[in-house]
């Protein structure tokens, strides 16, 4: 969209060439972009992720053919993604400092207004060798996002892991199951509200031969 491009024009000299190319191609799909600490990042809406991913992969100038990583971030209680609203975060941060008596417990601040999760994709190109990070915010009450397995088959396990750890459901995924934990596990351990020392009893085996002793005592 021209309005977006016009809005970006003043920042054009500082924009790295990769981001310039990506914004030119993707246009209004890019909600937000940032280049910090040597990494380039764009934010897209989750409805557009499949379209954006396809353009990023198929465009010969971009050619992001290697999906490095899919993961998620839980911004529980955080106003935004740690880049704006720092004052609010500074106030909230004090309660999160680790106390010596309870070193592994987190005291979480109240929830912020923005969507809680962000799904993060890291892409690279074996031809042009540039790396791009794509981020999509996903709300807590409807943690779904289209799966990119159809574009990169390697996303299969990575998305399963993200589902396992964060409970984000990838629509269109061929086989969305837990990958590390067992099926009976309750909750998603990398969410910030899952206590680190939370223990879950191992479910008793009820299949065939359950009553027989597993090993002689």
């Amino acid at each position: 969209m021209t309005a977006d491009n016009n809005g970006e024009k003043p920042a054009a000299p500082a924009l790295p060439p990769l981001l310039r190319k990506v914004i030119d191609r993707l246009g209004a799909i890019v909600l937000e972009h940032k280049s910090a600490q040597g990494d380039d990042r764009i934010n897209v809406a989750r409805e557009n992720i499949l379209e954006a991913a396809r353009m990023l992969r198929d465009d010969p100038e971009l050619a992001f053919d290697l999906l490095l990583d899919v993961t998620a971030i839980d911004y529980l209680g955080q106003p935004d993604d740690f880049e704006t609203n720092l004052q609010v975060w500074d106030q909230n941060r004090a309660s999160m400092r680790r106390q010596p008596q309870r070193r592994h417990e987190l005291v979480l601040p109240p929830r912020g207004p923005n969507p809680r999760f962000a799904v993060v994709y890291h892409l690279t190109s074996t031809a042009h060798l540039h790396v791009l990070r794509v981020k999509c915010r996903v709300p807590e009450d409807d943690p779904t996002i289209p799966s990119v397995t159809s574009l990169w088959p390697g996303a299969n396990w990575l998305e399963r892991e993200t589902y396992d750890m964060y409970g984000i459901r990838f629509e269109g995924h061929p086989d969305l199951r837990r990958i590390y934990l067992y099926e009976e596990f309750v909750g998603h351990p990398l969410r910030k509200d899952y206590a680190k020392h939370g223990e879950q009893p191992i479910q008793e085996y009820v299949g065939p031969g359950a009553k027989e002793p597993r090993r002689p005592h």
Binding site: A36, T71, I73, D74, D81, F82, W89, D90, R98, H122
Partner: peptide
């Protein structure tokens, strides 16, 4: 505050660490 991804060539391939910092001494992710 910020987030970085850095990859090195480990023995089996690209070993990347993606660290999200919230400004404290511990990584947020």
């Amino acid at each position: 505050v910020g987030e970085v991804y850095h990859a090195v060539e480990a023995a089996n391939g690209e070993l990347g660490f993606y660290i999200v910092s919230d400004g404290t001494g511990k990584p947020w992710k």
